[in-house]
Design a protein around this nucleic acid. Structure first.
Lengths: 237, 237
DNA sequence: ATTACTAGCTTCCGAGTAC
DNA sequence: TGTACTCGGAAGCTAGTAA
């Protein structure tokens, strides 16, 4: 009997449930509901996984204590690798996000006007942003996931700075085109000092985006984040 | 008809095959062999995926041209997320590698003796390495995968430096224990200037590891890489 | 050459139930 | 409570083959 993808996925769920590969305690009923199957099917899976040498079980009273073997771990890593490479291909071809125009706080405009930022924008993006940012509310789950993927995406890094009264955080810029090329000089910005909200997106451009695209509050905007051509400013560790 | 895991995996393979979500050209025979199914099953999958709205097809002569929809992409990302969180749990509990002692080149000993490195080891690891490194040949696929995972693992970063004649690259250190705690003060090191070989591992320790463990060439050694307590030296971008 | 239908066999699934 | 067997129906797979 050969384990199939469902079996490996079950192993993955077991890992998550037991927070590791050792001493997982779970009833077949619980397992069944986490993998969306009946108690009977869960039981069968465990028997088959054990036969295939992907996990070991020892009786602990009425229940079982499960340990996932090296080979079991390997199967999970294998499956993950397959999906990872697919996701990397998606990332490589750019991220697409759909958002709805909402009225901004007006903060953005103030920050963008500071000399400490303006000079860096000029140098690194090749333009000075229009004094005002576009605020988008992301429309679907896919867009929010793309937003999360941006964190591990190459960006153009604008350093923070300080004046006599206070300091200002960094800004990461992700070059983007809007509405299928209707506006091709724009950038999604992520500010260090913004409370984390995965459902919002802030966009800058050398022109007034609203006027340029002819849009008003509530209209939807398509954002395509392209791969930043500049190398990252810092190394990973 | 509800798509199951095999369907989503098929989408993942399509993404990889077409190097993106757009304009994938693949015959059902090719698809069948990449997903280890018959031509007929591959055909059925495509029909079902189209019905489920996860991809679209347009006739291009005799073949089809496939485009994966937003919903299709989302399903792949979803499945990836599940496995990613499992793999992260594995990482969190430490990486275990099995290797066989092989005779080193003797290079390691020379580098470790350089003052530019020694002072940093002292400061960051809390000890000076013994003048000689342990070279291990990894024994199985699982270990090599763990080796790959180390690249995204927190490390203690030892900067490179230059003297009058040449420059020396950085060294990443991953605290580790050997043979289930028989030696608990050790570190796997990864050198910037080593040609990339995923099947080898280099280990340092304040004592002579060979003597301390009582091992000789060909003996196997178990390495458990623990989570580095120090924060990374640089930020990501 | 393609895709995809049908037939028939095999696996999977869950309700009932034994232990 | 637990686990896991049997068994009937549903779904999956492939060879053959039509288009």
């Amino acid at each position: 009997m050969h384990p199939n993808t469902q079996h490996i996925l079950t192993l993955a769920h077991l890992l998550k449930f037991g927070k590791g590969r050792a001493s997982i305690e779970i009833t077949t009923t619980e397992l069944g509901s986490t993998i969306n199957r009946s108690q009977q099917s869960a039981s069968k899976y465990l028997v088959e996984l054990e036969k295939a040498g992907l996990l070991e079980r020892t009786k602990a009273g009425q229940k079982f204590r499960i340990i996932i073997t090296d080979r079991g771990v390997d199967e999970v890593l294998n499956l993950h690798e397959t999906l990872k490479s697919s996701v990397e291909i998606l990332e490589r071809s750019g991220l697409q996000l759909d958002g709805k125009l909402v009225s901004g706080m007006g903060e953005g405009a103030y920050y963008m006007s500071l000399d400490g930022y303006r000079s860096q924008f000029n140098e690194k993006l090749g333009y000075e942003p229009y004094a005002g940012t576009l605020n988008l509310k992301l429309l679907n789950q896919s867009s929010m996931r793309m937003r999360s993927m941006m964190d591990n995406y190459p960006s153009i890094f604008v350093r923070g700075f300080a004046d006599s009264s206070r300091s200002y955080g960094w800004v990461k810029c992700y070059p983007a085109i809007l509405n299928d090329g209707a506006l091709d000089k724009a950038a999604v910005i992520v500010l260090e000092r913004t409370h984390y909200d995965n459902s919002m997106l802030e966009v800058i451009s050398p022109v007034c985006i609203k006027d340029s695209l002819g849009i008003k509050n509530g209209d939807s905007v398509k954002v395509f984040v392209t791969k930043a051509s500049k190398a990252p400013q810092f190394e990973n560790t």
